[in-house]
Simulated scan of single mutants.
Amino acid sequence: MTAMSPPPQRTQPDLSYLLDHTGHVLRAQMATALAEIGLTARMHCVLVHALEEERTQARLAEIGDMDKTTMVVTVDALEQAGLAERRPSSTDRRARIIAVTEKGARAAEQSRRIVDGVHERALASLPESDRETFLALLTHLAEGHLSTPPATAAPSARRARQRG
């Protein structure tokens, strides 16, 4: 019988777990909150970013970190709900923009308040004095060292949607 030694003790917190778990819970809370008004996080993302300026469907997919198929399904759902429509771009006849309807603009404003509330509740779990620092450091990671996956990353290793 061979004695097995215990695995080495962790010397650092499991950053991958912490980021994955908190991101998963935040996305679930967001999905639940937005479902109350019949939207998904992707629908919210498209509406909000399409309202900012004329953007093509491809550009909105990039902003929302969606592949083509997911973007098409999302815009189909927005059109079916009367919240947005595809139109020719004013600058490129080959491109289609996503135009938000009046109903869609009202839904975007409502969803923006919901998203802000979910974020505020998450941040409220931190001591008030740490919130600004936490956001600054997380932004530093997201825009710096963790901004882009390595070129050799498997196709399934996509960054999570996070604009909101």
Rank of each mutant, 00 (worst) to 15 (best):
S90K: 06
T56W: 01
T70A: 04
E54D: 15
R86H: 02
V72Y: 08
A61M: 05
R59Q: 15
T56R: 04
P88Q: 13
P88G: 13
R55M: 13
S89H: 15
E52S: 13
T74A: 00
D76K: 03
E62F: 14
D76V: 04
M71F: 11
L51M: 15
T56H: 03
D76I: 03
T74N: 00
Q57S: 06
D67G: 12
A50T: 12
S89G: 11
V75Q: 01
V73W: 05
Q80H: 14
P88C: 07
S89D: 15
L78F: 08
A81R: 05
G82N: 08
T69N: 01
E62T: 13
V73M: 10
E53M: 10
L83Y: 07
L78P: 05
T69A: 00
L51W: 09
A84M: 02
A58R: 14
L60C: 02
P88A: 09
V75G: 01
I63R: 05
E53G: 11
V72Q: 07
E79R: 00
K68P: 12
P88N: 11
R87C: 09
A50N: 10
R87G: 08
K68A: 13
R87D: 12
L78H: 08
A81L: 07
E79H: 00
Q80T: 15
Q57V: 06
S89T: 10
T74L: 00
M71P: 13
E79F: 00
E85R: 14
S89L: 10
E53S: 13
T70M: 02
A50Y: 11
A77H: 06
E62G: 10
G82S: 10
T69L: 00
E85D: 13
E52F: 12
A50D: 14
L83Q: 06
V75A: 01
A77N: 09
T56G: 02
M66C: 04
D76H: 11
A81P: 03
V73G: 07
